[in-house]
Design a protein around this nucleic acid. Structure first.
Length: 550
RNA sequence: GCGCCCGUAGCUCAACGGAUAGAGCAACCGGUUUCUACCCGGUCGGUUGGGGGUUCGAUUCCCUCCGGGCGCACCA
């Protein structure tokens, strides 16, 4: 019996109470899993919520609901508890059916239509192609990708996107730096100084010796473009290794080439939010809660970076996305208001068409000491170095198991530890452990898919807990998507893994050598098959591997 | 000065406005006759930064103070 069934049952009862005049109007049915198992499989606070409007004592009202729940099929027991909660315990049979549901749904279990019909553009990282991705980008590489997966699992139409800042003076400085290095000269003071600049220069010298025959202007462009291509490719390679997928790599240059900037200005002009002052063109963002108005075109005729941002937002909307989600670092939170104001100025609803998620900074330590310098980039630790040190699974999982508004301190030694104090291995181990049991079952010729599944014999408390935990998965995924909080999936998996380990500890799955195969063995194999499926589905949402053996 | 985020056990952090605020680590004590012990159980540990308010109920929402991080460009 699934949550939806119980919810429907309760809603039906509330409807009856309204019809009978006990309640003046319907109330929302909030159904939750009690923290304490002693409170049953499910609990609802409808009586507490409705008591006031009904002019009744919450416990009396709860008792009326309980009376109607008892005797419903699938409900083993209902009771009033505390100030007026209604606790519900399901029958073993209805609870056990969940295993069959999961196995039948397979990889689709957990997917829902909670957000179907909504289209999202999820933009994250969006680094300059002038160097390696570093720690500042890493949190989003993991969380942004997981968010895109979670939204899709909730039925939303999702496009993940990386905005390439390939225009402007930073690109020129980058080109100058590589060119200087290729000539064996010192890199300009305000250029890029990492060791990777030397690598890029050496490689370009090798592949394009003819660049040195070009005139200064042409040579600068040649180096800039060649270095850009190589560096972008390097970022893409690292992200591919990190399993972070982007549907679209959107070049800032493209905004200009396709006329998106002009189109955006036209739109804003139509909406009446542009004005000229002191020789510059301004957007009146203060109308929508920004601190000050912003310049789009400078006095010297150049576009500001903000003009590109504006055009980019509108381009996303022109491309048909309902909501543009931006994932930004805490050091960019000052942009939130002006971005939201752009939506307002364009005639959109800043509360619907744009969402900006701010991620707090991540600090890395190694054995308790802060790690700052990267060997390669000369700045802070790179994504590549992090992966080399702790591996993709550990890095991704660790970064996604915390809410993004929590400032993080991660210790490389802890993350890489292959022990139970490391949640990623704890969850993966549960998966591998079940796979092992399933393999062993196969080895002794025990096929749980054949023969009859008897859910009603799954009456052990730990079986019940595990099944209840499994059943929660779709709701967890939907909530993670609705709240844009993929960490909920990771936390859930840890609880699921724990529920499995405790089940395994108490309930023998396979027959011992001197035992006959019985219904209970088959039934528990179904539970194992369901648990391993949910673990795999959950890890997939986080982009973490689900190992067959460890 | 203005704005955003954060403050929960010794440490790293959880907790759609719900019941006795939870995990892991650290410290101590236990558990395996056969499926993966990278597992399971127990003990110790708290004025949820302080103070008000909202309500049946506040770690959660509002106000205020304290403490920490970050941001306040015709830069990119």
């Amino acid at each position: 019996m699934a949550v939806e069934d119980i919810r429907a049952l309760l809603e039906g009862i509330v409807g009856q109470l309204v019809t009978e005049g006990v309640l003046p109007r319907p109330v929302d049915v909030a159904l939750e899993r009690p923290k304490s198992r002693e409170h049953g499989d499910y609990a609802t606070n409808v009586a507490l919520v409705a008591a006031k409007s009904a002019g009744k004592n919450p416990r009396d009202l709860a008792a009326e609901i309980v009376a109607r729940l008892e005797g419903s099929s699938g409900v083993a027991e209902a009771s009033v508890a505390g100030p007026g909660f209604v606790n519900i315990r399901l029958s073993a049979a209805s609870q056990g059916e969940i295993a069959r549901t999961v196995v039948t749904a397979g990889a689709a279990f957990g997917r829902s239509n909670a957000l179907s019909g909504q289209s999202f553009n999820v933009e994250f990282i969006s680094a300059n192609p002038t160097g390696p991705l570093h720690l500042g980008h890493t949190r989003w590489a993991a969380v942004g990708d997981a968010l895109a997966r979670v939204l899709a699992a909730a039925g939303a139409d999702v496009t993940s996107e990386f905005y390439i800042n390939d225009r402007g003076v930073q690109m020129d400085k980058f080109g100058e730096s590589v060119m200087a290095a290729s000539h064996g000269e010192a890199v300009p003071e305000d250029g890029y100084h990492g060791a990777y600049i030397l690598d890029l220069a050496a490689r370009i010298n090798r592949e394009h010796p003819e660049f040195h025959t070009l005139g200064k202007e042409e040579q600068l462009i040649a180096f800039r473009e060649a270095a850009y291509a190589l560096q972008l490719q390097q970022q893409q390679d690292v992200l591919a290794i990190f399993r972070t997928h982007f549907d679209v790599w959107y070049s800032e240059r493209k905004l200009y080439d396709t006329g998106a900037v002009d189109r955006a200005l036209d739109r804003l002009r139509e909406q009446g939010h542009l004005y000229e002052s002191e020789g510059a063109l301004w957007l009146r963002t203060t109308t929508f809660d920004d601190d000050k108005d912003r310049v789009l075109i400078k006095e010297n005729g150049e576009n500001t970076y903000f003009a590109a941002d504006t055009a980019y937002y509108l381009d996303k909307r022109f491309r048909g996305f309902d909501t543009a989600i931006y994932l930004l670092g805490a050091d960019h939170h000052g942009y939130v208001n002006r971005l939201r104001a752009v939506a307002g100025c364009a005639g959109d609803d800043p509360n619907i068409n744009i969402e900006v998620l701010i991620g707090q900074l991540v600090k890395i330590t190694r054995g308790g000491e802060e790690v700052k310098l990267s060997k390669r980039a000369g700045t802070i630790v790179t994504l590549e170095e992090l992966v080399e040190e702790v591996g993709v699974d550990a890095a991704r999982y660790t970064l996604t198991r915390y809410p993004v508004d929590t400032p993080l301190t991660l210790d490389l030694v802890d993350i890489a530890r292959k022990a139970n104090d490391n949640p990623v291995f704890y969850v993966q181990y549960a998966h591998a452990r079940i796979k092992s049991v399933l393999r062993n079952a196969q080895d002794i010729g025990l096929d749980w898919r054949e023969g009859t599944f008897h859910p009603e014999i799954l009456a052990e408390p730990l079986e019940n807990e595990l099944l209840g935990q499994i059943e929660l998965f779709p709701r967890v995924v939907a909530t993670a998507a609705e709240l844009r909080e993929p960490h909920r999936v990771a936390r859930y998996l840890e609880e699921l893994a724990n529920a499995y380990h405790r089940f395994y500890d108490a309930c023998r799955v396979l027959p011992r050598s001197d035992e006959q195969v019985a219904d209970i063995h088959l039934a528990r194999l179904w539970v194992c098959a369901a648990a391993v499926q949910v673990l795999a589905n959950g890890l997939e949402l986080l982009g973490v591997s689900a190992p067959e053996r460890m």
